[in-house]
Each structure stands twice: as C-alpha cells, then as structure tokens.
Design a protein around this nucleic acid. Sequence first.
DNA 1: GTCTATAGGAGGATAGAC
DNA 2: GTCTATCCTCCTATAGAC
Lengths: 214, 214
Amino acid sequence: MSNTQNNKKITAKGRETKDKIFRTAVELFSKNGFYGVSIRDITSAINIKESSLYHHYLSKEDLINDIYFYFAENIDATRLTDAQIDSILAEHDGHSLLQKCLQEFRGVMEQPLMAMAWRIISMQQYRDDKAFEILSIDFHRMRIKYYENIFRTLVKRRIIKALDPKLLAFEYFYTLIGMLTEYNVLKFLKRKTQVMENLMNEHIEFFWNKIKNS
Amino acid sequence: MSNTQNNKKITAKGRETKDKIFRTAVELFSKNGFYGVSIRDITSAINIKESSLYHHYLSKEDLINDIYFYFAENIDATRLTDAQIDSILAEHDGHSLLQKCLQEFRGVMEQPLMAMAWRIISMQQYRDDKAFEILSIDFHRMRIKYYENIFRTLVKRRIIKALDPKLLAFEYFYTLIGMLTEYNVLKFLKRKTQVMENLMNEHIEFFWNKIKNS
DNA sequence: GTCTATAGGAGGATAGAC
DNA sequence: GTCTATCCTCCTATAGAC
C-alpha cells in the first residue's frame, strides 16, 4: 500500500475516504485510462476537494501503484491448491480439472475490481515498467508455472500423454489469455461475449482431446 | 488518409513535411503513448512550429487516425497467396508452410513503422473504439480467416487430420499472437527476446505434431 | 481530515503576417 | 507552407485556515 499514512493516525473516516478514492480511481482509470482521468475527475465524483486526496495519496502515481499492488496481491487467489486438485482428480477426469481451473480463474478475474485493475495494468504495460513486470511476471509467468505443475501431475499419473509440461502450459495458457483478453474488452464495450465464451470452452475441449491418454 | 488537404495543392515540400510529421508521431506515440506525447513534442522534434502541423493535420486525432489507416492498409501484405501456398506444399510439407507463414508475418510486422503502429493500436484499443475495431476485426479476425483457409486446404489434401479448420485457426493464432505481443514488448524494452522466439518455434512444432496425419 | 485559494506549467488549437 | 504571437482550458500539486 502507499506510504502516505506512515506517520499518521488512521481514523475510520480516513480509511473510508481512502477506500472511496481507490475504488473510484479504479473505475475511472479502467474506463478512460490513467492519462484520461484527472485528480479532479476522481475527487469531484466523490465530492471531496483535490487537496483532500493528497492527504491520502502522495501523488497520482502513488494512487495507481496502489492499484497495481491490489492486483498483484489478489492474483494469487486464483489457484487451486494441490489438495483441491487431488480431490477433483479423485472424483472426475483431467478434463473436468481444466474446466474447474478456468472457472476458478474467471471467478476471481471477473470480480469487478479485479477486472478493472487487470484492464488498467494491461493499458499501462506499454508505458510503465512496473505494470509490465506485474503482468508478465506476477501474472503470466506464475500462472504458466501453475499450469505446468498441473500438467506435470497429469503426466505423472498417466492421465495425459508424456509431453513436456512446460510446453503444454505455454500452449494452453497463451490461447486462453488471448481469448480472455478479447472477452474482457468486449464486456467493457457492452458487446456480446457469447462467441468468446464458446471459444474458451472449445479450446479446453480441443486441447484436452489432443493430450489425453486414450 | 486525413482529409486536411482535400482542397489544397500538395507540393513536394508539403508531402515531405507531412511524412516527417507522420513518422515522428509514430515513433513518439509508440514510445510514450498518445496521451504522453504533445503536439509540441512532435513539432519540436522536427523543427517546425505547432501551427505548421495544423496545416497538414486537422487535429491530434486526425493524426492518429492516419496511423490506424496505415496499419490497417499494410496488414494485408502479410498474406501468402493461394499460388504461393500451393508451390510451398508442392516442394515441402505442411510444417514448412506454417513456418513460412510465420516468417512472412513477422517480416511485415517487424518493419519498424508497422511494429510501432501495432504497438500504438494495441495501447489505444482500450480507449478508442476505432483502434479496437481494427485490431479485432481487420487484424485478428481476418488473420484467423486466413489461417482457417490454410488449415482447410491441409485437411482437404489429407496432410493433417480431419479437424475443424476454424477451431484450428483460433487455437493456432491466439497462441502465436500472445507470444508475439510479449515478444514485441520485450523488444521495445530492449530486453532479451530469445525465449519468446524459441517459444514461437516450439509452438509451431507442437501444434504441427498434434495435427499432422501420420 | 477537509476545506479555500492559488501557484505554475503544459496542453490543443487558431489568427493573421509573410 | 511556415512563421510569430496568443488564447484559454485543464492539469498536478501545495500552503495554510478551520
């Protein structure tokens, strides 16, 4: 979190205001981009003065860093634990596991604040090294490692063919993330997303049929 | 192109200046984003005055629209013709065809102006409907149709298994574009891209092995 | 913790001379 | 086709009263 308040007593009212600022910033940044939103836009939306914002955040940059932090912190929540994976495999097949994974993932990524934060970081990745870092390392790389782990388990148990788990993870994830990105942009534009939803399910289906041990 | 000059005689000097403006804008926008670059930044980089720019472009928006247009126009050049496809298949196998396709594609997309324009449109897709439209329709959808066509040919000639060409195209393309996007960001940050290059080749290899008729 | 007031600069764009 | 000069708006951020 931002260090603005390191030497200040934090009151309930203060926390509430800071929270309002945060949520409003996420909303506006995700809609109009970091550079398309002014401090005035944010403060006037919640009826405080610009100067009040600077009591809670050092700068506009401090504010967006807080959003990055929020995203990075919550991205971890999208993972099934080893125990959960085991219990799914005990009752269902690998195909169900992949579906369950996507469900879990989408459950977190489509929470409004996370979806907006994701969008903000995606926009910022081109201008802000910190955003690119979080997106490519904390998000993509970690996520690929997670899938690698899952595929390794599936190979070990001979549920799927003896393919390189790392390569499988890359193949599987990049397709999914490409589709999910387009899906999210469509959702923001309030257009139909059914095509993309179907594609994602077909992707899992297709991928599964290519790798399963039959 | 922009309509600024509809009723004006275009001299060689004018064309040259407009071209300088265009190329400088592409360079700066791709580095610092549309909102991170001012008209002043562009004109001072080529030693003309702001007012001179407005002789060639109606507005900053007119300028970026010209860049969109440039991208959309040149994206078509990345396609192998049916004749070229035939001749490749006559001498080599489907695997070579996929490699050749990627080569052709990268050859166009990595030309400096195109790479920068692509980056600009990618950034703008979140803020500008026109950019999203070009990226998702003119680029992604058309490209997928192109691959669909190739896979259909391969299926017809029994070079690959009898799978749905459209699905194959989606699978193939989304992975590639995800990797290529990350590859391009890395290149802009002047970081190592070898990992991504290897991944792209492994992707083709992996995909090919999954679909070929053996 | 929030306010009023204001500093101080950068932005897009235009009028009109040459 | 390019210049000088200028307009006016919007921006981030701060000082200091309450």
